[in-house]
Amino acid sequence: MAEYVLDKYDRPMKDLRISVIDQCNFRCTYCMPKEIFGDDYSFMPESELLSFDEIVRLVEIFARFGTEKVRLTGGEPLMRKNIDELIYRIKQINGIKDVAITTNAVFLVRQAEKLKQAGLDRVNISLDAIEDDVFKETNGRGIKTKPVLRGIEAARDAGLPIKINMVVKKGMNESQILPMARYFKETGDTLRFIEFMDVGNHNGWNLDAVVSKKDIVQQINEEMPVEPVDPNYFGEVADRYRYKDGAGEIGIISSVTEAFCSSCTRVRLSADGKLFTCLFASEGYDIREMLRTDCSNEQIISYLIKIWTKRDDQYSIDRAKGKPVDKKIEMSYIGG
């Protein structure tokens, strides 16, 4: 399918992540801190969001570069009206092999079945604790785990593969590493631990709050022995470990202690059409303007080639070297 091969640095553009809405139905400490996203926060008007037609056009263009995976993010993507229609349209695009959603799962009770029918391949669900008292602290709104767990169950009943994402922050939820591992080992869902990262500028990040991949693996291995597994594909960000008793696996994303910038194959699109080549970028490239000023597909393709082939972002590596850091885009804006 691919007409253009963007292989500079041996990094094809395989994975497109699209934020379809900036709104969320509950706040999380990691990407939507309460001091910024209070109850009176003003989100984007609908006219600023990329339309489904615009998103589909861009995915068709990206597929010409060899993009195979599309993940819909937010905010909370399930708050975007008729999101199942967008999923169906993306799944019809030649070359797209995998369509996923990152969600906090609350709306999956009502939507899981129709999302599956539309062609959704899998769901990534954010859950930073299994015990209510800790989870209420992490989401900042006193919400218990039950709505999320019901959504996970609905996704499972619909036949959707599930990955659970837990951001681990020292002093907040590191006590949940083993309870989360025990719980999802029993359910058979893949649990991925994510080192607390300095995304955005308001999440109170400091290196002392990071629980490292090494520490996470050690904790789990002492109770539930694990062993490393080879990556599924080039650019896979999670280091995978399987339980030695055969009861599934876990993954760990370690962009703080073990940066993987050189193998990144991801590109991100904000809800209002800005393109970012790094989760830690300071500025994006305005693609929406090109869509709404009658630029041809070939003009957009030429622009994308320039963006990708000149990319030299390696924020996590630069951070480790102690290089100065510019102000970064917020996670709530760029998506996951």
Rank of each mutant, 00 (worst) to 15 (best):
K116V: 09
V217D: 13
N25G: 13
E289V: 02
V59H: 07
V106T: 13
M166Y: 09
D53Q: 13
A271P: 00
K163R: 13
T67N: 14
T257P: 10
T73A: 11
A259M: 02
G75A: 12
L275C: 07
F260I: 12
S270H: 05
A105R: 10
N124F: 12
S282F: 02
A105F: 15
I194E: 01
V148I: 15
F107I: 04
Y41A: 07
K14T: 10
I317N: 04
R110F: 11
D312V: 04
S316N: 14
A209S: 15
G251M: 11
C28M: 02
N165H: 10
F43N: 11
I36M: 01
V168Q: 00
S262Q: 09
E227G: 02
K328F: 02
G95N: 08
P179V: 05
Y243M: 06
A2E: 07
I164D: 00
R156H: 14
L78W: 03
K327N: 09
S262L: 06
A281H: 05
R288K: 15
W205T: 13
A154E: 08
F65R: 00
T73C: 08
N139L: 10
E46I: 07
E258L: 03
P161G: 07
I143E: 06
G66D: 13
Y41T: 06
L6S: 04
R11Q: 10
Y30D: 08
R27Q: 11
K81M: 09
T29I: 09
S51T: 15
L58W: 04
Q176D: 11
Y30N: 03
V325R: 11
D22E: 12
V217Y: 11
E249M: 15
F276L: 05
R141Q: 09
F52N: 12
R89V: 00
Q92S: 13
P147A: 04
F65G: 01
I55L: 15
V106F: 13
D7I: 12
N94L: 08
C278V: 04
Y4S: 09
R141G: 06
Y4L: 14
A247W: 00
G248Q: 07
A105G: 15
M197K: 06
A63S: 15
